[in-house]
Write a protein that binds this DNA or RNA. Structure first.
Lengths: 361, 361
DNA sequence: TTTGGCACTCCCGCCTTCTGAGTGCTAATT
DNA sequence: AATTAGCACTCAGAAGGCGGGAGTGCCAAA
């Protein structure tokens, strides 16, 4: 059973005022701000019904009203106008997306950084773990004690390591290693690389020095690493600027939660109504205890089948849902496009360069 | 002109009590705690002299005494016993140092993490920028649209990137590129790679597709990247647990400072008395405005000539200098050893592996 | 159904008082 | 001469009391 149109307007007004001021809003404030031609008394009646219905709360008898989680939920689901981004904001986002792609880590932390800067709330960027295998091995002989392992993963990421050993080996051995690894270690998960596989590879190469073990160890390490979600948190200090976190205990609790970014993987609970690209989780809806009186806005990004992840923003329940959602959604969309395009790009590389070099006369 | 032995003892007592309780210490507390057989009246006399000499401060007339920066300085320089680490602590440190070395980034952030966990203050790990050049190029042909750039730097770090282009090229071209880059791009700084160099390289390879530009751009990017200091900050939230940062404004100020880790590079000001391995910077001695009423303990680490850096801890001036200094110094020493040994290691690789594989039956 | 009016509630900021820890000084003791 | 006991004094912080004012709820009139 819905509520009247007028009530919805009033509820929106309360929420928007509260978002702006962080203070309980009274009937008078609504009359002044929202221009529906009603008197404060009428508003009061409606307010008290909205309170009875659970959409608003009263901190104490003679205070104004504050939205309840249910109120926010209604607002987010039905009432909120989709925020629009200003020209400057989209430009800002585009700029940070166009940043260097070299390291995924760096990109993600930049993204988290600009999400945080843009929303003025702490932000988290995380990559969900994905199963990968090694696609291709290249071993580069540098000198008698040194070689480089280069592994290309099924995700198209490339990892490498310089190995310098206290004993020497021949270039031919490295070539053989390379062939053997390409033949028998590709397409495997970390778990399926076991001692017997290593033994037979040693046999195949005629390796008595343990080189196979060295390469295998790096392979395992790399695969495991790739299969681990990574998280980047930025802007935690912005939390302290919000009045609701002036209580150091509260702030501290949330901060500790934030500082272990991986805990964010717990969050995206029941995939919302139709799995919208942006999800809003309000206060008590959160599974994590520490977030019970904070809200989270999450956007998913997608890069082919090889990578997917989340960017999220944390703030007080009184949060500018509309603006934050719009920004995150824009960022996530851009990120998806960018990451997919890396897989099969336009003239990206070339253009990028010309610019770079030109700036370096 | 020194001060009497007894005064020093009293000063130490004040500082240690204050470190422990965070509250101004009175004459009575000293009598109870430190067991020199004196009455509170005697202590009071001494206290008032120490105050006159500037080693102590009085928040207000009828409060106890609090150490002044000068007092802390004296304590750190002369009075403080070198903290000893417990068995558990050294083990903890060793464990985190033995962690995977794969990524320097990861290692550094782990180190910052354990420094912070151990001291219960926020910690920063940073690598000072070092000039590097490319030492060796390897280009790996993957398929007609794809190749991998592998660059070995003078720091022995290896960087790579997968390049996928919307047009095709031949394997021979990649081979030629590789030769040309090894011939003319090694030993150069980012700044000395310019358009004319690229043009002549294009000529030398017969490259009309812009492949040279792609590789050159990545080279420049990589060199610049390597020449940029990196910073990792962890445990900022622990700050909020300290009573002196219960004021959200103060906390917020310091947090913002911390969140830009690079600002730490400003810190190690005048290389202290004899450039000890651990440096303590007390309150107003800090150049950075935001740190004027916080203290910083810094330890340097060194890894050959290729890398050096700092790990540091930030806290209130009332900080357990002795313990923190001991821990940082231990970590820095371990880090130096570890990083140098990577350059010319023992059986490191092999042993590491056997263990790893064994754990994976 | 809406509105003006009015009594009522109760938080918040302000002021006052009170308490107790701690000081500084003086006089007595060793 | 150094140390100690004793005592008056200071002052921050807690506790309590007192309006002011924003806001409510209800009633009666439009």
């Amino acid at each position: 059973m819905g509520i009247s149109q007028r009530k919805k307007k009033i509820l929106s007004a309360v929420i928007e005022l509260y978002i702006a001021t962080a203070e309980p809003v009274g009937s008078k404030a609504i009359v002044e701000k929202s221009s529906l031609g009603l008197s404060s008394a009428t508003i009061r009646n409606e307010l008290s019904e909205l309170t009875a219905e659970g959409y608003l709360e009263q901190p104490h008898t003679s205070a104004g009203r504050v939205p309840s989680p249910a109120g926010y939920r209604l607002y987010v689901n039905e009432l909120m106008e989709k925020g629009r981004l200003s020209r400057e904001e989209t430009e800002e986002i585009n700029r940070s997306l166009q940043l260097k792609m070299e390291q995924l880590d760096r990109l993600m932390s930049d993204i988290a950084g600009s999400a945080s800067a843009l929303t003025q709330y702490p932000a988290v960027a995380l990559a969900e773990p994905v199963a990968v295998t090694a696609e291709r091995f290249d071993l580069i002989y540098v000198d008698a004690n040194t070689f480089i392992i280069v592994i290309m993963l099924s995700s198209s990421a490339v990892k490498n390591k310089l190995i310098r050993l206290p004993f020497s080996f021949e270039q031919g051995m490295i070539t053989r290693l390379s062939a053997v690894f390409n033949a028998s270690f590709t397409g495997l998960s970390a778990a399926s690389i076991d001692a017997s596989l290593i033994d037979s590879a040693e046999l195949a190469c005629g390796d008595t020095l343990g080189l196979v073990s060295v390469v295998a160890a790096f392979t395992i390490e790399t695969l495991k690493e790739a299969a681990t979600g990574r998280a980047f948190v930025t802007g935690a200090s912005r939390l302290l600027k919000q009045p609701e976190y002036r209580d150091p205990d509260r702030a501290s609790e949330l901060m500790s939660f934030l500082s272990d970014g991986r805990r964010f993987l717990e969050l995206p609970g029941a995939p919302g109504i139709g799995d919208a690209d942006v999800e809003v989780i309000i206060g008590p809806e959160n599974v994590a205890e520490e977030l019970r009186d904070s809200s989270v806005v999450i956007a998913r990004y997608n890069a082919g089948d090889n990578m997917r992840g989340i960017i999220g923003v944390v703030g007080p329940t009184r949060m500018d849902y509309s603006g934050v959602a719009a920004k995150l959604s824009y960022i996530a969309a851009g990120l998806s496009k960018l990451l997919s395009s890396q897989e099969a790009p336009p003239g990206f590389g070339k253009l990028q360069i010309k610019g770079d070099v030109a700036n370096e006369p």
